[in-house]
């Protein structure tokens, strides 16, 4: 099942129940009246695009609709989909799909870092790569055990130290072992931390610095962000980017009803490509990102034209 199908399945399941809260835009005619523009703004805000950005997009489209004499709502939404899709920063192929690399996964607590590392390990192994995992979350209870389970599922080795040890040392061990074993993709799980915690952000900076210094392979940092995140997501991304100079983002939990609109702002403002999306808790629930599909899922499909 493609990512868009997966998302729209989630949507249609919830649509009946939450009809009034959902995308009423789709159920009405194609007239370009105030009701349409308000509905459009509402849809964008409900997708977590943000109040200011939503108003701006709507205003801009309104202008264009007048100037280019767009005939109906379908034309506007086509335009919008393209506009949203092109707002995402493209690129990022090198990070996970390129040559040998060390990738560190970072983000606030509970977004899906460990799970994503597990899924990626499987995907890369299937693609014939030699993967090694490193467990640099030495803080959270049973974080190491959790990653070990994922390593078993994906059938890849994992480098760990006991809970409470220095995460930078774990990374050091991991890199050393990667060289010995000839791993060409090293995925490092880190502890979740809030961007507002100065100590923990400094610790992470140090970890990344150690890896950058020690690694012979290119080193990338990837922010894992939860699709249910609201407007705070941008602040999170700014702080992580400032501290670590991020290379991309992965959006998780898109199998719910959250649309992940904050990813648009993050990708755009911080010029970060979306590398993958998470659509479930299973080993295979990681999909490639497609900007047009994502845009379509954000605003809703509008293909009911006769």
């Amino acid at each position: 099942m493609g990512f868009f199908d997966r998302i729209s399945e989630g949507l249609s399941r919830s649509r009946d129940k939450f009809k009034e809260q959902m995308n009423v835009l789709l159920d009405r005619g194609p007239d370009l009246d105030d009701e349409f523009w308000d509905g459009l703004e509402e849809t964008l805000i409900l997708a977590d695009i943000g109040g200011a950005a939503a108003s701006e997009i709507v205003e801009n489209l309104r202008d264009q609709a007048t100037r280019r004499a767009l005939p109906d709502a379908y034309a506007v939404l086509d335009l919008l989909n393209d506009q949203i899709a092109s707002t995402f920063t493209p690129g990022g192929e090198d990070v996970l799909g390129g040559g040998p690399a060390v990738v560190l996964f970072v983000g606030i607590n509970g977004t899906g870092k460990t799970t994503t590392v597990g899924k990626l390990a499987k995907e890369a192994t299937d693609a014939g790569r030699t993967v090694l995992l490193g467990s640099a979350d030495t803080f959270r209870a049973a974080a190491i055990e959790q990653l070990e389970v994922w390593a078993r599922r994906a059938n890849v080795p994992v480098c760990t130290r006991e809970r409470g040890s220095d995460p930078a040392s774990v990374c050091y061990d991991t890199l050393e072992r990667a060289e010995q074993e000839g791993a060409d993709l090293v995925l490092v799980d880190t502890a979740g931390r809030l961007h507002t915690s100065a100590d923990l952000m400094r610790e992470l900076e140090k970890v990344v610095a150690v890896v950058r210094k020690r690694s012979q392979l290119p080193v990338y940092t990837v922010l894992v962000i939860d699709a249910t995140t609201g407007q705070n997501g941008l602040q999170q991304a700014r702080e992580f980017d400032r501290a670590l100079d991020l290379d991309g983002v992965i959006v998780t939990k898109l199998d719910g009803t959250a649309k992940g609109g904050i990813a648009l702002a993050v990708s755009h403002e911080l010029e970060l490509p979306v590398l993958k999306i998470g659509v479930g808790e299973g080993l295979d629930d990681l999909k490639d990102f497609d900007a047009h599909d994502f845009a379509r899922a954000l605003v809703g499909d509008f293909d009911e034209r006769e």
Partner: peptide, 26 residues
Amino acid sequence: MTGQDVVNVSAAFAERVDFDGVIMSK
């Protein structure tokens, strides 16, 4: 940090398990 979707989520949990109160985390 939850965004706009919180109403869909909490409404569904209220309907199915009828919780009594909320702990806001993080």
